[in-house]
Simulated assay, not measured.
Amino acid sequence: MAAPLLVLDDIRKVYTRGRIVRRPTFTLQANLSLDEAGIVGVVGPNGAGKTTLFEMMTGSNAPTSGRVLVAGTDIHGVKYRERDRLAIHYHQSYQVRRFRKRVPSAFLAPSPTRTPLVHLFDEPQFNLQDGYIGFMLDFFRKLRNDGRLVILCMHPTAAWHLDILAEIAGRFLFVAGGGVTPMADFGALVADPRCRAYLGPEMTKAADAICPGAVHSST
């Protein structure tokens, strides 16, 4: 039986401040498994830790505790220059994030794969010119159909952002309050009171128009 494509095994990231006494300023933790190829949408307030989560998933930010497993391999134990053969992080404008090197690469293992199994898109800038959005959505679907896991983070500021998420993502992760909550589908996401508070009245109204049953299912 094949290993899940991505496992966050009780990962916890703690940021601290202070020269003598280190005091926690932010904590993010997650424990979940994304077993199969698919497209997962990620949403949550600014500063909730979405980019930190992506960096831990792709090996550029080491968790304080826990493991990130990509197809059964601990990505933080893989040579830095080969981690993007397991999971790759595109940060806006599709720039690839750089790694923070802490352990000499000679002490790390080679990647067991040559091409990424997990593709993470961090708030990509969709061009509104004719056909571009459709091209990108087809690209995400092709990755999924090729057995890849696509994770798409968006910060909805317009109704069409919600349209994209509802159309392309089969599952969702909501990042807030120091945790990561899996959501089965778009309806479950927009029915969650925390998500509705994050979206605000205008975006919540747009979400309800896309998925009218969400409000009813939350009551």
Rank of each mutant, 00 (worst) to 15 (best):
T64H: 01
D192F: 07
R114T: 10
T25C: 11
D74S: 03
T157D: 02
S217G: 08
V150T: 13
S111L: 05
T204V: 11
Q92E: 13
L143K: 15
F126H: 12
T58Q: 11
P212W: 01
R97K: 03
H91Y: 11
A206F: 01
S33A: 15
I88R: 15
V78K: 06
F99W: 11
E202F: 02
M57K: 03
R85L: 00
V42C: 00
A184N: 13
V21A: 04
G131R: 10
G213K: 11
M56V: 10
L165Q: 01
A158T: 14
V68Q: 06
L117Q: 12
R100N: 10
A191Y: 03
L152F: 06
G44L: 10
I210V: 02
P24N: 02
R194V: 08
A166T: 08
L162R: 12
D122T: 06
V150P: 06
R144G: 02
I168E: 01
L32M: 08
D192M: 01
P212C: 08
A214P: 00
V103F: 11
S111T: 03
P182M: 09
M136D: 00
L152V: 11
G38L: 12
R144F: 03
H216E: 15
M1D: 02
L152K: 05
I168V: 15
T58G: 14
A197G: 03
P182K: 11
R97I: 05
P63F: 12
Y132A: 14
R144D: 07
L152D: 09
Y198C: 02
G59R: 09
L32T: 00
P63E: 10
T157S: 13
G59A: 09
V21Q: 01
E167T: 15
Q129F: 13
E82Y: 10
Q29T: 00
R19M: 12
V40N: 13
A184F: 05
K50C: 03
G179C: 04
Q129R: 13
A48W: 02
K50Q: 07
K142V: 13
A188I: 05
L143H: 14
T52S: 15
L117M: 01
L6S: 07
A109R: 14
K79S: 00
L28D: 12
Y80T: 11
D74W: 06
A197C: 02
D10F: 00
S218R: 12
A159N: 05
Y198M: 04
G72D: 06
C153R: 06
R98I: 01
D9P: 02
L120V: 15
F135W: 13
R67F: 06
P193T: 08
H216S: 15
L143G: 02
M203C: 08
F107G: 01
S65P: 05
